[in-house]
Amino acid sequence: MAFVSGRRLAQLLGIVALGALAAGCTTTKPTTDAKGAKLGYAAEPKETGTTGFFSSHSFSGLAGRSVTVNSIADLRLRNHEVVLTFDDGPMPGRTENILKVLDNAGVKATFMIVGQMARSYPALVREVAAHGHTIGTHTQSHANLAHMSAAGAQAQIDGGIKSVSAALVPSMHGVAPFFRFPYLASTATLRRELAARGIVVIDADIDSKDYFPSSPDQVRKRTMARIEQRGSGIILMHDIHPRTAQMLPQLLADLKAKGYKVVRLVPGHRSRELLVSSLTTGTVTTPEQTALAYSNR
């Protein structure tokens, strides 16, 4: 049996984890093959990166205000304001392209990270944070919490928080108390419990459906049409699909041309921070202990 390096093993584990995520945060039935297995990258275009997308675009003035979020009530956007969110990553060769586009446009996004992916690619989690983006969580393994027991759902939520926390420990960054339900499938009970813990649920107003086997331009046009219909909103995208990075520069150019502003979400001082960079393995094991440690710093 051939020897597999630790780095290669991490990559393989990430790909396995990604297979469970490939359908994206949709409530529709994922594409399957003849044997019923999920198709991770059905009809994905050939990866071309983002080279050449930037030269014709000027993004001056696209960046808008920062919104401090302590509760769902703070998630109020003005007309022609949007929030960029990316779920399910990080993924090497994919997330970096998204970061390049956002850097070029001078805007910030919120990344809702899956715990398994954070465990496989912790350095990439830290890279996202180092670029100034807000990091929230998206469960440990992208499970549908609405179909789980209360204990199972809490384990998924806490597992995701703990894994992303571990990835960020070596850095000076922490995770915002922001959470998104996989498949956007929630329950009233889970929402109440999250609110009681100071965790803000980040819902989505505009689903790009970039997990569908569409061309980058189809994703862009579909997303822009929905934005224009609503006039503002939180946009759901995924940093695990090449088509998303490929269409993103033109989507941002469209937003700029139509007078939209990209709003940055940041956690408020009154939020109970679940993760802090000074924590080390073994000192804190639960979100409640983390919150207590943060309050005693």
Rank of each mutant, 00 (worst) to 15 (best):
H147Y: 05
R243H: 13
L279R: 12
I227E: 04
T134F: 02
Y183I: 00
M148F: 02
L248F: 06
Y183A: 07
I135W: 02
E193T: 11
F53G: 01
V128C: 03
K46P: 03
V125W: 05
S71F: 05
L13M: 13
I15V: 14
Y121R: 03
F54Y: 14
D33Y: 06
R65I: 08
A34H: 14
G106K: 04
F3A: 12
I72Y: 09
A196P: 03
S278V: 13
G89A: 05
I72F: 13
G49F: 10
V107T: 07
D88Q: 08
L274I: 15
H138W: 01
I15M: 10
G24A: 06
P267D: 07
V67R: 11
F181W: 13
M224Y: 10
N70P: 02
G233A: 06
C25W: 03
F53V: 05
A129C: 04
R264W: 09
A167Q: 01
A2R: 10
F59Y: 15
G136V: 01
N97G: 00
A151N: 12
L62K: 12
I157E: 00
L265E: 04
G24Q: 01
Q250Y: 06
K108V: 04
L124D: 04
R226Y: 05
I234W: 01
I206G: 02
G14W: 06
E228Q: 15
V125Y: 06
A118R: 08
Y294M: 03
N296D: 05
S171T: 10
K221E: 15
L75T: 04
L252K: 04
I235E: 04
M1I: 07
A185R: 09
A34I: 11
Y211D: 05
M117I: 03
D158Q: 10
H131R: 14
F181G: 03
V4K: 10
